[in-house]
Computed example of a mutant assay.
Amino acid sequence: MAVGPDPQQGDGRFFVAWLHIVAPKGAVPTATSTCACGRDRSAVGHRKVLALVEDHTAHRDACPLRNSSAGRNAA
């Protein structure tokens, strides 16, 4: 029996940041923003969760794991 390639082997991409939002109907929403660079923030309530979503999105441009100087120089 021949052994084929490992089907679990990825394409080199990996998750760096996670945004987890819980908003049950009729309850107070909560959110957590986590990044592999060490950033870990949370929010409770509609306005604070919306602000955290914006902050999480803005972090993409500032994260040192996504925007290393080596990556900018190679482009």
Rank of each mutant, 00 (worst) to 15 (best):
D61V: 07
L52F: 07
L65N: 01
D55N: 09
A31F: 02
R60P: 00
G45Y: 12
R47N: 13
A74S: 09
V28H: 01
L19G: 07
G26H: 01
R72I: 13
A43R: 02
L50R: 14
D40S: 14
A31R: 07
R41P: 00
A31W: 01
G12K: 05
A36K: 03
T30D: 00
E54H: 07
D40T: 04
V49W: 01
A43M: 04
D11R: 15
D61K: 13
W18T: 04
T34N: 09
F14Y: 13
R13M: 00
V16E: 14
P64G: 11
T30S: 11
D11N: 07
A74N: 05
L52P: 07
L50T: 14
L19F: 03
A51S: 14
G12Q: 02
A43L: 05
G38M: 04
P24R: 03
C63F: 00
R60H: 12
R72G: 10
C63E: 04
G12M: 03
D61W: 05
F14Q: 06
L65I: 10
G45H: 10
H56L: 02
G45I: 11
V28K: 09
A74Q: 14
V28I: 14
V16S: 06
L52H: 05
W18L: 14
D11H: 14
A17Y: 05
R41K: 15
P29N: 11
G71Q: 08
A74L: 08
L19Y: 06
S42P: 04
N67H: 06
R13A: 06
G26K: 07
G12Y: 01
A58I: 00
T32D: 07
L50A: 10
R47L: 10
S42R: 12
P29H: 13
D61N: 06
S69A: 15
S68G: 03
A70P: 04
T30K: 09
H56T: 00
A58D: 11
A51M: 09
K25M: 08
G12S: 00
S42H: 12
A70R: 13
K48Y: 06
T34I: 07
S68Q: 06
S33H: 09
D40Q: 10
H59C: 01
K25E: 15
A58M: 08
V44Q: 13
V49N: 01
A27L: 08
I21K: 10
V53W: 02
A70H: 07
F14L: 08
N73R: 15
L52M: 00
F14H: 14
R13Q: 04
T34G: 07
